[in-house]
């Protein structure tokens, strides 16, 4: 009797959930169509791909393109540049976004809070093609920033034409563009923290700093870990459109990253297989980092991302 009832409930439950499954279906369909099927293209990395011969008739060359990639004289420098810029963006971007979320959460006037939030995340929606000209006008040798420097008696800095400053400019402008948008998720994490904890802490005489440090941050930790692990997967992509629109041969030394390099050598030179090989390598590195980050968080905090 008991069992029967149970079974009946499951069937009913399943039926009522059918509609949800249907809702997932279109998304899943597109995911398979545009993300899983194209993965077959990975074969290209092991071939000398000729478009007319197609994916299955091009000649197999094994690891030729991978070996070539690691023999390129500049590859070490380029991977280094990529990681410096990607890590810089990740670290500074997260710190700023978290700090901003915590501060924004303190604003009690709802109107103010919404306005500030909107203003700050708007740049996220602008394309780098547009923003690049803004950056060039601000930081060029005759730009506003340098005019300000001259007016207070400092030397001009050639932001866009100096290998030393360029990565900083790239990281800085990217953080400025994205921190508002990425703070949204941290803000959500903060609001989900039980207010009771804050009340209890206040009762015990904890200062604002103490509460941030001992209540807010620990409450956000799972999300912070999740985001870190996610961001780690893109460690080998430092943002093509931003750098492509701002760099020049004069800053290749520190500004040429994997994406831009592969673009120049691979696509413009029509070396498809080489491009695919680099893409595959990058995915493998990203996946390895994601898995190890997951294992590490499990070990350290006993929480798993997936």
């Amino acid at each position: 009797m008991e069992g029967m009832k149970n079974k009946k409930r499951t069937a009913a439950k399943r039926r009522s959930e059918m509609s949800y499954h249907f809702m997932v279906f279109p998304g899943l369909f597109f995911l398979i169509l545009f993300s899983y099927i194209p993965m077959v293209g990975v074969i290209m990395a092991f071939q000398d791909f000729v478009p007319a011969k197609g994916l299955f008739k091009s000649e197999f060359v094994g690891l030729k393109h991978f070996i070539y990639m690691f023999q390129l004289p500049d590859i070490g420098k380029i991977i280094r540049n990529t990681m410096v810029i990607a890590l810089g963006k990740m670290i500074f971007g997260m710190i700023l976004a978290i700090a901003f979320a915590i501060l924004l959460n303190e604003i009690r006037i709802k109107f103010m809070k919404k306005t500030v939030q909107t203003i700050v995340y708007l740049p996220h929606f602008l394309s780098w093609v547009v923003l690049a000209s803004v950056v060039t006008n601000l930081f060029g040798l005759d730009g506003s920033v340098n005019q300000f420097f001259t007016s207070i008696g400092l030397d001009k800095i050639n932001f866009l034409g100096s290998s030393k400053v360029f990565p900083g400019l790239i990281i800085g402008t990217d953080v400025w563009k994205e921190f508002g948008y990425s703070s949204v998720i941290y803000l959500a994490a903060i609001t989900s923290i039980d207010p009771g904890l804050h009340e209890a802490a206040t009762m015990d005489g904890a200062s604002w700093w103490k509460r941030v440090w001992n209540v807010t941050i620990p409450g956000m930790l799972p999300i912070i870990l999740l985001m870190t692990a996610m961001n780690l997967t893109s460690i080998l992509s430092a943002g093509f459109d931003q750098i492509y629109n701002l760099y020049s041969p004069i800053v290749y030394e520190t500004g040429d990253v994997l994406d831009t390099y592969v673009y120049r050598i691979g696509l413009v030179g029509r070396q498809y297989s080489f491009g695919a090989a680099v893409g595959l390598c990058r995915s493998i590195v990203g996946m390895a980092l994601l898995l190890s980050a997951n294992a590490l968080t499990k070990k350290l905090t006993d929480q798993k991302i997936f």
Binding site: L31, F34, S35, I37, P38, M39, V40, G41, V42, M44, A45, F49, L55, M230, T233, S234, S237, V262, Y272, G275, A276, V278, G279, L280, R282, S283, G286, M287, L290
Partner: peptide, 13 residues
Amino acid sequence: LLLAATACSSQDA
């Protein structure tokens, strides 16, 4: 995100 990371190869395909 993983899929985004493989975007390069999928474009070629």
